[in-house]
């Protein structure tokens, strides 16, 4: 079973909850950190480094100035405003180039080549409650959705090899391509929100994307007691939309304490009421029909 944890808004506690789900006792899992832009769970779990793989995030156009005549034809074709002429010299902006290859194709002198963006990586290994896969997108690189797919494929292969039933996917914030790639085809999508106006606003957009792909959605309201009124509004919204509430968790400074000690809250305070609640939420989700 694949369970994706996403949030729309950042900082709602998505990764802390993923970490907790990944360390419930008696059930080893495959943990896939698909927040490839800001992968964090390896900090808590220090997985062994067994395998890494280069991920080609796309390409960037580069001019060979020994050939370029600065004719500017490439500039006319670029749809990304990446090619500029300054004092008669043509330059390509690395940050704006989308890697479409068109400039290289139209250059009459063959002065432009495409270079692979090959700084991103995918890693996998063992952690203390199973196996872990995570991706790291190099700064400024694009197509994080494809790296997410690669991480998920690897996680599925590992689940099969090691005979592990559950894959926990820690997704990225937002609703863009990396989120779509993190949730498509999963059995459950858990949207973690917080009782703020921004939280509610972002939750609505996150649920829209889950519904667009006809996936099974759940909502967790984290830190619900920071604003009871807003929590009620969120509950009402879920009710009206027919989305089940998997549970509500109170604000708990021990979650940060656990993180500082490089533990999940389940590992840090296994006997606490809070940890019991997380276990109950997990059961609600995984035992549903």
């Amino acid at each position: 079973m694949e369970i994706a944890i996403i949030s729309g808004k950042g900082g709602t506690g998505k990764s802390s909850i993923s970490a907790a789900f990944a360390t419930l006792s008696g059930q080893p899992v495959v943990l896939a950190d698909c927040d490839v832009d800001a992968a964090n769970l390896h900090i808590l779990f220090a997985p062994t480094h067994e395998e890494d793989q280069v991920y080609i995030a796309g390409q960037t156009a580069v001019i060979d100035y020994s050939i370029c005549t600065h004719c500017g034809i490439c500039m006319d074709y670029c749809q990304f405003d990446a090619i500029h002429s300054m004092d008669g010299k043509i330059t390509i902006s690395e940050t704006s180039c989308d890697g479409c290859h068109l400039c290289a194709r139209v250059c009459p002198h063959g002065a432009i080549t495409m270079v692979d963006n090959d700084k991103s990586r995918m890693y996998s290994g063992a952690f203390r409650n199973g196996r872990m896969v995570y991706g790291r997108l190099a700064p400024g690189e694009e197509n994080s959705g494809k790296l997410v797919n690669m991480v998920r494929d690897k996680a599925k292969a590992i689940a099969k090899d090691y005979n592990l039933e559950n894959i926990i996917i820690d997704g990225p914030p937002g609703i863009g391509c990396a989120v779509i790639s993190s949730i498509t085809g999963t059995n459950h999508v858990v949207v973690v929100t917080e009782p703020t106006l921004s939280g509610l606003h972002d939750l609505k957009r996150a649920l829209e994307i889950v519904e667009k792909f006809s996936l099974k959605a759940w909502v967790i309201i984290n830190k619900y007691d920071l604003n009871d009124d807003m929590s009620r509004q969120i509950e009402q919204h879920c009710h009206d939309r027919g989305i089940p509430l998997a549970g509500k968790l109170p604000f708990n400074p021990s979650v940060v304490e656990a993180m500082v000690n490089l533990k999940s809250i389940i590992e840090w305070q296994p006997q606490s009421e809070f940890s019991r609640q997380i276990g109950a939420i997990w059961n609600t989700i995984t035992q549903s029909k």
Binding site: D37, A38, T95, L137, P139, G140, E142
Partner: peptide, 13 residues
Amino acid sequence: PPGTSCPFIQTVA
């Protein structure tokens, strides 16, 4: 936007 990929780069650039 959060992160360090394209949306962030386009903004801070």
